Simulated assay, not measured.
Amino acid sequence: MTTQPVHDPRRSFAQALDQTARQIAATRPDELGKRTPCADYDVRALLGHLIAVLHKLVHVSVGGDARELPDVVRDIADDAWGGAFAEARGEVERAWADDAMLDRMVTLPWGTMPGRVALDAYTHEFTVHSWDLAHATGRLADLEPALAVEALQAFVEFAPPDERGEQGPFGPVVQVSEDAAPYTRLAAYLGRQP
């Protein structure tokens, strides 16, 4: 009898962070005020949210509750977002390098779960927010389609349309053709206008 290898989400998570880092590096200070498809954020606030998520992942790695930290970091200079993201990413990678973190229970804003489930969820969040950032700044060609395919599969399972309320990060599904590009289908599924 063979056993399935245990899923380690850190590789996909790193790919999502690589993609996000490329989008951040390409973002110019004059683009920071642009609206994003994520209704809560302009580009500056979205960048602050992405860094805040990394801080939350470090915080939960030492037993903290992610809800104890702000959802958006706001004290970063307009030309320092790339460096701030790289620094926070390094902290996350060091905090999650130990394989034991994957099975440790961590508390996120939406519940308590094993670390591997949390990293999967944040892989998909970074994938969606990379699209938000790329859409706002006109850099959609720089996105990795495989990440969108994985994220869409996860969101279909964990964010079905019939369980969405009036409040929350996802709106009603926007209809697009079945042969639309992966990020178009992902954005539309989450209620964003692709």
Rank of each mutant, 00 (worst) to 15 (best):
Ala118Tyr: 05
Val72Lys: 07
Phe126Cys: 07
Asp179Glu: 12
Arg35Glu: 14
Asp78His: 03
Leu133Gln: 01
Arg104His: 01
Gly33Tyr: 06
Asp162Pro: 10
His124Tyr: 14
Arg44Tyr: 07
Pro70Ala: 03
Ala16Met: 02
Gln193Ser: 15
Asp18Lys: 00
Ile24Pro: 08
Ala134Gln: 04
Gly33Thr: 12
Arg11Met: 15
Pro194Ala: 04
Gly171Ser: 03
Ala66Met: 07
Thr27Gln: 00
His124Thr: 06
Ser12Thr: 15
Gln167Arg: 13
Ala181Leu: 13
Val128Ile: 13
Ala180Pro: 11
Trp96Ile: 02
Ala84Lys: 08
Leu46Asp: 04
Pro160Arg: 03
His7Leu: 14
Cys38Thr: 10
Gln15Met: 14
Gln175Leu: 11
Leu50His: 10
Pro29Asn: 01
Leu17Lys: 12
Leu147Asn: 03
Tyr189Cys: 10
Val62Ser: 15
Thr2Met: 12
Ala188Glu: 05
Pro109His: 03
Ala100Val: 14
Val73Asn: 02
Asp120Tyr: 10
Gly115Ile: 02
Leu46Arg: 02
Ala25Met: 07
Arg44Trp: 00
Asp142Leu: 12
Asp99Trp: 02
Ala134Ser: 09
Val58Asn: 06
Pro182Cys: 07
Leu143Asp: 06
Tyr183Val: 13
Val73Cys: 06
Val62Asn: 14
Gly168Met: 01
Arg74Gln: 14
His129Gly: 08
Trp110Cys: 01
Asp18Gly: 05
Thr36Met: 07
Val106Leu: 06
Pro160His: 02
Gln4Phe: 12
Asp98Lys: 09
Trp131Val: 02
Phe126Asn: 00
Glu91Arg: 13
Leu102Met: 04
Arg67Pro: 05
Val174Gln: 08
Gly111Gln: 01
Gln15Asn: 13
Glu144Lys: 11
His135Pro: 04
Leu46Asn: 06
Gly171Trp: 06
Asp132Phe: 00
Leu133Trp: 02
Ala86Gln: 08
His55Thr: 15
Glu166His: 10
Met105Leu: 14
Asp132Tyr: 03
Gln4Ser: 15
Gly111Glu: 08
Ala100Cys: 03
Thr127Pro: 00
Leu50Gly: 09
Pro9Gly: 09
Lys34Asp: 13
Gln15Gly: 11
Arg139Ala: 05
Ser61Val: 01
Leu46Gly: 03
Val156Gly: 12
Leu32Thr: 04
Gly171Met: 09
Glu166Ala: 12
Thr123Cys: 04
Ala26Pro: 08
Ala45Thr: 10
Asp71Met: 11
Ser130Asn: 08
Pro161Ile: 11
Asp132Gln: 02
Leu186Trp: 01
Gly165Phe: 03
Asp75Asn: 09
Ala141Asn: 14
Leu46Cys: 04
Val176Ser: 04
Ala136Asn: 04
Asp75Gln: 10
Glu93Pro: 08
Ala39Tyr: 03
Asp78Cys: 02
Asp8Met: 07
Leu186Lys: 01
Gln153His: 15
Ala66Cys: 03
Arg35Asn: 12
Gly82Asn: 12
Ala66Arg: 03
Glu144Pro: 08
Val128Ser: 11
Pro172Arg: 15
